[in-house]
């Protein structure tokens, strides 16, 4: 029995690690550039790697560099980071719905590794997710993020420009790769993704809302409206 459990855990971990490969590839150009920018902003190698190890949030780290170079104070940088990361409340609450009943400390541990990318992969996976799967997924993503930040700082250069440019599509391509299978299966997905995409674009481009708020509002609005309509039409079928 225990061997079976151990094997299951191992295969979940491996499954997670496999799913993490695309994230690891996608993080590479972003982390390398982060390391490079951190160096030009005047952060030491230790500071750069520590930031990637402790924060592990791409957009926030980029903004922190930008604010640092403008001479912004620590408190304001931390506050900006918080606002940008409010969207993770929504993501983790959603992930919790399909999370296995692992011990709380395990959940608290893998919570650290929830990013836009690891969330998207875990949330679109068939069936439930357990801690072993999340650890595998996060191990590759986190490893790529931290190591490549360090390399970017050390080498002081990112990838050749043309490769850097074409690799910048990697994470977006991954998101599309995660979305399309469900798009083919369920009409509801088209509405959810389409509505959120339109609202997000409007909020960013027309109303110039900060990215953190735009994504939260767009996601919530789409999720609530589509759920409301689905419930209404269900009610009509019942009647």
């Amino acid at each position: 029995m225990e061997t079976i459990l151990a094997t299951n855990k191992l295969s979940s971990f491996r499954q997670g690690a496999q799913a993490g490969v695309s994230i690891a590839i996608g993080y590479m150009p972003i982390a390398l550039t982060f390391g490079l920018l951190a160096k030009t902003t005047g952060l030491t190698l230790t500071e750069t790697v520590m930031m990637s190890m402790i924060v592990f949030a791409g957009a926030s780290q980029y903004i922190a560099l930008n604010l640092l170079s403008l001479g912004t104070g620590t408190f304001e940088i931390v506050l900006t980071t918080f606002i940008l990361n409010i969207r993770h409340f929504l993501m983790t609450a959603s992930l919790n719905e399909k999370a296995d009943h692992d011990a709380l400390w395990k959940k608290a541990l893998y919570a650290f590794g929830i990013t836009d990318e690891t969330f998207s992969v875990a949330a679109t996976k068939e069936g439930n997710v357990n801690a072993a799967y999340m650890f595998g997924l996060i191990a590759l993503s986190y490893g790529s993020w931290v190591v490549n930040s360090g390399i970017g700082h050390l080498v002081g250069a990112s990838l050749p420009q043309s490769l850097q440019e074409s690799m910048s599509v990697a994470l977006y391509a991954m998101f599309i790769g995660l979305l399309v299978p469900s798009l083919k299966k369920q009409r509801k997905t088209i509405w959810l993704a389409g509505l959120a995409a339109v609202v997000n674009s409007l909020l960013l481009l027309v109303f110039h809302l900060p990215k953190g708020w735009a994504i939260v509002i767009a996601t919530l609005l789409a999720a609530v409206i589509v759920q409301y309509i689905a419930k209404e039409s269900e009610g009509k079928h019942d009647a």
Partner: peptide, 29 residues
Amino acid sequence: LPPFLQGVLKNVPYATLGALIVPGIFFIH
């Protein structure tokens, strides 16, 4: 959680993906 809220949270991944892709992908270059 109440069923309606559960439904909303189950919708979140696909809505998030929509917002993560658009408009960001059109500004990579």
